[in-house]
Design a protein around this nucleic acid. Sequence first.
DNA 1: AAGCGTTATGTTTGTGAAAATATAACCTTC
DNA 2: GAAGGTTATATTTTCACAAACATAACGCTT
Lengths: 119, 119
Amino acid sequence: MKDLLPAPADYRLEGRVWVQGPHDRFLGIGRLELLAQIQATGSISRAAAAMGMSYKRAWDLVHSMNTQALAPLVATQTGGKSGGGALLTSAGSQAVADFQGVQTRFQAFLAEETRRLAE
Amino acid sequence: MKDLLPAPADYRLEGRVWVQGPHDRFLGIGRLELLAQIQATGSISRAAAAMGMSYKRAWDLVHSMNTQALAPLVATQTGGKSGGGALLTSAGSQAVADFQGVQTRFQAFLAEETRRLAE
DNA sequence: AAGCGTTATGTTTGTGAAAATATAACCTTC
DNA sequence: GAAGGTTATATTTTCACAAACATAACGCTT
């Protein structure tokens, strides 16, 4: 592409990847970050706030993941001390770790291809 | 992920990649197919029809690519024999070839990562 | 000069996803 | 038993983007 573009350094390969199930999306970068925020904050509502996302959307995403997986990724509690909360199950932590690996390798792919664009 | 999902074989990594410029998207899978259809049909309107896309949208995409590239990827002619038409410039053919290479390597990446998901 | 198929371009309408809004239920704490 | 903060869920509203619609211009052909 180098001789196709006026300023090749300003162009790069970007992209997104996600794990797709038979019916719905299972995991993507947004859901990954949501899981990480739930882990960090201990609640869906605080995770949503931290991401500038509505609570409903966050809950829907959690629901989608929990119902698709063999075991829930997020365990929730309604009521109780400080109103309740949410935390990652071991399945949840494993999903986070696994998909972070995918993301890391994908970023490497994009960087390598961006390098190629300029040659 | 293998022990996270009920039927790991039904889940795969999917994704999209595109060349992003400072202001607009430059090339993606849709634009690539559009260029290929222009090459095959000799006109923007026939290419759009072949893709089930409105002519205006196709023209806008061509315009976006032509104005971002150093030289136009698509040469057009208004009026004349059979009303006019469009064809790929050499820059256009090179862009198609280059991005097809990116796409091929990306599909290989997705396949490899999908294989990984099941292990 | 009238017609045809195309490029070129502006304006209006639809539509689907996200956000906003609204309630209810839950359980600990005070 | 009232309050507080959370999960859980339905309904309504917004908004960005694509589709649809509408016109004009262009230059061969007949």
